[in-house]
């Protein structure tokens, strides 16, 4: 499956750069679809783009952001996977203030 291939790519990238404080220190919350999300969202940038924006986000903003990654930046995410990514992101990375 494609997302497994992406996950392997991500792990390969991590092993190249195992130093004290680098992006491997940023790990998404351990819950269903964590690896699925990591595989799609760590291709072009580190996952701090997600953690840093959590206080700003809600479900609608995550949907818009995932769509922007696809439409504007060419993220290799299939339309059928969007709901799954938005579900994970908006369950774990939203404003709880």
């Amino acid at each position: 499956m494609k997302h497994l291939r992406l996950a392997r790519l991500f792990l390969a990238l991590c092993s190249i750069s195992a130093t004290a404080a680098d992006e491997t220190s940023i790990v998404l919350i351990d819950a269903p679809d964590r690896d699925f999300t990591t595989a799609h969202c760590a291709i072009c940038h580190s996952l701090d783009y997600i953690t840093m924006n959590a206080p700003v986000m809600d479900r609608a903003r995550w949907r818009a952001t995932v769509q922007k990654m696809i439409d504007r930046f060419g993220a290799p995410i299939e339309a059928k996977d969007v709901d799954r990514l938005v579900a994970y992101l908006s369950q774990h990375y939203v404003n709880r203030e």
Binding site: S17, A21, D22, H45, D48
Partner: peptide, 30 residues
């Protein structure tokens, strides 16, 4: 990945030093 995280060093208070830089506030690594 190599370019952006090479030899990044941790220090206290969430500050991180990139090569040739003193520790700064890390907003994103890559």
């Amino acid at each position: 990945v190599l370019a952006s995280s090479r030899e990044a060093l941790a220090s206290e208070a969430g500050l991180v030093a990139l090569p040739d830089k003193k520790p700064l506030i890390a907003r994103s690594f890559r």
